[in-house]
């Protein structure tokens, strides 16, 4: 049992940075992102004894995070900030501009659409996998993807080309 706890702690330390980045894309706020990661780690810990049945615990953790985000939004109606906070540490001027613009654009999307885009493009998952992750039909995921991308294009406009060149 101690070995299982140590294994989980090691897993959690390794995966937390990436979980946090995903959470940040989903919620657009540092504190909410930490809360989301904390809840995800808690659920993974709870399920850890059965984790040997899962082929890819890291990918499963990302799925748990996305599902937790969607369910929390449904329960709490999280108040989204229209603009992301300016990062405290800016390695390059372009990074802050990119983060703010992307967060602003993502905040225009419905939470489920945001989750679809993050899983499809940040996590690089297929339509079918995202459908399984979120409990939707593949056709619905394709529709949401198209609609969300179109919305991003409208919001980002010419900035999309500019940001891509930073």
């Amino acid at each position: 049992m101690r070995q299982a706890a140590e294994d989980f702690e090691e897993f959690a330390h390794v995966r937390t940075p990436h979980l946090y980045r995903t959470a940040w894309l989903l919620v657009g706020d540092r504190h909410q992102a930490e809360d989301l990661v904390q809840e995800t780690l808690a659920k993974m810990f709870r399920a850890w004894r059965g984790i040997s049945r899962i082929d890819n615990p890291a990918a499963y953790a990302q799925t748990v995070l996305a599902r937790t985000f969607v369910s929390q939004w449904r329960r709490r109606r999280l108040v989204e900030q229209p603009y992301a906070e300016v990062p405290e540490v800016v390695e390059r001027a372009g990074d802050a501009e990119l983060r703010v613009a992307l967060q602003r654009a993502l905040s225009e999307l419905a939470p489920l659409d945001r989750a679809v885009l993050v899983l499809r493009f940040f996590e690089d998952r297929s339509v079918e996998q995202v459908a399984l992750d979120l409990g939707k039909k593949p056709g619905a995921i394709r529709t949401r993807t198209s609609r969300a991308l179109e919305r991003l294009r409208v919001v980002l406009g010419d900035d999309a080309v500019h940001l891509a060149s930073l």
Partner: peptide, 23 residues
């Protein structure tokens, strides 16, 4: 997305511990 999050890190240093306690 990947470039925007490249330097994004949690501020809390006890996030894993908090997750375990909640777990």
């Amino acid at each position: 997305m990947r470039r925007a999050t490249e330097y994004v890190e949690p501020e809390s240093t006890d996030l894993v511990d908090r997750g375990i306690r909640r777990g």
